[in-house]
Amino acid sequence: MKLNTLTAAFGLVAPTSALLRFGCAKLTVQRLDPLVNPGQLPSTHLHQIIGGNSFNVSMEPDKHDLPSLSTCTSCQFTEDFSNYWTAVLFFRARNGTYKRVPQMAQAGMEGTQGGMVVYYMSDALFDTAQKSKVTAFKPGFRMLVGDVTNGNRDDARDFRQLTYTCMTDQSSRFPESIGFPKTPCKGGIMANHRFPTCWDGVNLDTPNHQDHVSYPEVGTFESGGRCPSTHPVRLPQILLETVWDTRAFNNKADWPEDGSQPFVWSSGDKTGFSSHADYLFGWKADSLQKAMDGHTYVSAPMLKTQSISEQNKCTVPDMVKENFDGWLPQLPGVSM
């Protein structure tokens, strides 16, 4: 899908400078992936999904307008009917069985069932000025970051901003690692998904859901790195933080006998290098544009918020009818 011209890409979207931070409750946990496996029921592995309740097996951009088809969102801002999803974390016990790791709400968002914290920013997270200019996403925009087939550090170099934080408490953000933490984490494991921030200005999507976007040519978004000439339009940085509550699995006597870390993504990856996340833009009308134009830091008085209890009410039906609670002999859909 393309915009008609580069003029439309630059001329119709005002430059923005702001940072939004908000929580989203669990919309559903199912083997669904309308971006990579559209129409496939079930998809290859389990995902945890947040956002608008129009999420479905197939979501073709020309036929699926998220704001008009959704009746609720699991996110704090009621104008955000976007969908965001990642793989699900499992613990593999010494006897070879698996148990899904629960998700933990961050401070100030207690009561949120599952879910993530979402950021949209125009500068580094700690920069309260947020002075840089970025261009808000257009309707129909979608992208994927990461590669489910990655199994080593060299493979993961193309996605240098997909990381993990071994947390000691709720304030932990550093240090970050590219693979799974090797030791027990007192406060859980935070998975950090930072999406590319440079756009080609033409395509709202590409066949692999990645070629229309890019990381900066040099440096990072946080360091103000410049975009490559092939992708000149600077987008907001989307960061997803998911806290996996691994505290119940910190007894090393339950870990593999060789002492290796016991966590595995729902895709079957034991290294952590396959970390990936998907995004379907679905903000209502120009609400994101207005919010980013507001020059705000975290707060967004121009947006409507809803209570955590209302966020938790927004769900979608179970389309796969698959049991993945308790101890499992194998990962859903994955033969190990």
Score class of each variant (00 low, 15 high):
212 H>N: 13
182 K>T: 15
206 T>W: 01
186 K>D: 09
201 G>W: 01
219 G>R: 05
187 G>N: 07
187 G>C: 11
186 K>V: 12
193 H>D: 14
182 K>L: 13
203 N>S: 14
182 K>Q: 15
174 F>Y: 12
211 D>E: 12
173 R>S: 14
203 N>F: 08
188 G>L: 06
184 P>K: 01
181 P>F: 03
197 T>K: 06
187 G>Q: 08
195 F>C: 08
172 S>K: 12
200 D>G: 06
212 H>W: 09
202 V>E: 13
185 C>K: 00
217 E>M: 08
198 C>T: 04
207 P>L: 03
211 D>Q: 13
183 T>P: 00
214 S>T: 02
214 S>W: 05
198 C>H: 06
185 C>R: 00
214 S>I: 01
207 P>D: 03
175 P>T: 08
180 F>K: 00
200 D>Q: 03
190 M>I: 05
200 D>S: 07
209 H>V: 12
176 E>W: 03
185 C>E: 00
196 P>L: 03
187 G>P: 08
216 P>I: 03
207 P>I: 01
175 P>W: 12
206 T>S: 13
183 T>F: 08
208 N>R: 07
205 D>M: 11
193 H>N: 15
192 N>C: 09
177 S>N: 10
196 P>N: 02
180 F>Q: 00
195 F>Q: 02
172 S>R: 11
216 P>D: 05
211 D>P: 01
178 I>A: 15
188 G>V: 05
208 N>S: 07
188 G>Q: 02
219 G>T: 04
189 I>M: 12
194 R>T: 10
177 S>F: 14
194 R>W: 07
